[in-house]
Structure formats: structure tokens, C-alpha cells
């Protein structure tokens, strides 16, 4: 039967985990939450930052000054002014250039695996830590047996006498 103090102790044991969970959720929400309204220019810049400059391998269209990158910037502003959504604009570029035009993988299909696996890794590793902590908590503290205590007493006594009784016993 569970008594009130037991329940209280159980809740208190979970408090650090609950606090940790709250902190993680708050941090993720704070990082992921869209901050206010974005202007059309900001949207165009953000989209350009997602697109690879077609004639320079490792730069985004936002970071490059090639003619293609500048043309992409103008095209993005035109499409936003026409009312196209970010997803529609991305799709236009994927249709033209293929998935490789995106600097980051899409968050669907196989691309979802790339986003999902690190999360899965964290969850599995966290579960491993929980199991390990529980196992350590279950391990009973070592206590000395009566034989151990007798042995210690005899060693102390022999040291006090200046002889080692264990040696004498052999």
C-alpha cells in the first residue's frame, strides 16, 4: 500500500525531470516560434538563403553576387509580390533545378529522415540515460558483514599489540 509520504517522495523524485522537460519545451518553442511579421524583403531574403546559387556550388543565392543569384533575388521579390506562398516558390525552383537547388533537405519524404533521425537519436539516448540512472539507484549500498567487522577488529588489535594475528594464525 502506498502511503502519503511515499507518494510525496515519488512526485519529488520526478520534479527534476519535469523541470528539465519544461525547460526543453520552452527553449524549443522560443527558437522555433516565428518572430513577428516578416516583410516581403525579409521573405525574399530568407528564401534566397535557402536556395543554392546555380552557378556557384557552396553559396546561397542570398550570399552570391552572380547574375543568376541576382536574377533569383528579383524573381523571388516578383513572386512574393504576386502573392505566391513560400512553398509554391520553393516548388517552382525544385521543378526547374531539382532538389539540389535547396541548401537544406526538404522536410518530407526522405528528407524527413534527415530531420527525424537526430530527434530519434536524442530520444533513444535519453531513454538509455533514464534506464542507467534507475539501475544505479536500485544498486544496494554495500554493508559490512559481521565477518568483515571481526576481521577489521582483529587487524586493529594486532596493530595495537605490534603483532599480526593473521600471520600467527597461518
Amino acid at each position: 500500500m502506498t502511503t502519503a509520504p511515499d507518494t510525496e517522495r515519488g512526485v519529488r523524485g520526478w520534479l527534476p525531470w519535469i523541470a528539465l522537460g519544461v525547460v526543453v519545451v520552452v527553449v524549443i518553442a522560443w527558437v522555433a516560434w516565428p518572430s513577428g511579421t516578416t516583410s516581403d524583403a525579409d521573405r525574399a531574403h530568407d528564401l534566397a538563403a535557402e536556395l543554392r546559387c546555380p552557378d556557384c556550388e557552396s553559396l546561397s543565392a542570398a550570399d552570391s553576387q552572380t547574375q543568376s543569384a541576382r536574377a533569383i533575388g528579383r524573381d523571388l521579390r516578383d513572386r512574393i509580390a504576386e502573392g505566391q506562398s513560400d512553398a509554391e516558390i520553393r516548388q517552382v525552383y525544385i521543378d526547374r533545378y531539382g532538389e539540389s537547388i535547396l541548401l537544406k533537405p526538404e522536410q518530407n519524404g526522405l528528407g524527413l529522415v534527415v530531420w527525424g533521425l537526430p530527434v530519434l537519436f536524442v530520444v533513444v539516448a535519453g531513454a538509455g540515460l533514464v534506464v542507467a540512472f534507475r539501475r544505479w539507484r536500485r544498486t544496494e549500498p554495500m554493508t559490512a558483514t559481521a565477518d568483515d567487522e571481526a576481521l577489521v577488529r582483529s587487524v586493529r588489535a594486532s596493530k595495537a599489540d605490534g603483532t599480526d594475528q593473521r600471520t600467527d594464525q597461518r
Binding site: 533537405p105 526522405l110 530519434l120
Partner: peptide
């Protein structure tokens, strides 16, 4: 659990290595 973590790491490596159609040279 250790095996699970290892499998996830290997799968992640394979996906990144073969991935995801974002190699511009392709």
C-alpha cells in the same frame, strides 16, 4: 538501447552519405 543508438547513427550516416538529392554535382 546501445544497439538502437548504433543503428540510428549508422542509418543517419547512410542517409547523409547517399542523401537526399542535394548534391549539386548530381
Amino acid at each position: 538501447i546501445a544497439l538502437g543508438v548504433a543503428v540510428v547513427i549508422v542509418a543517419f550516416s547512410v542517409v547523409l552519405a547517399t542523401q537526399v538529392g542535394n548534391d549539386p554535382r548530381k
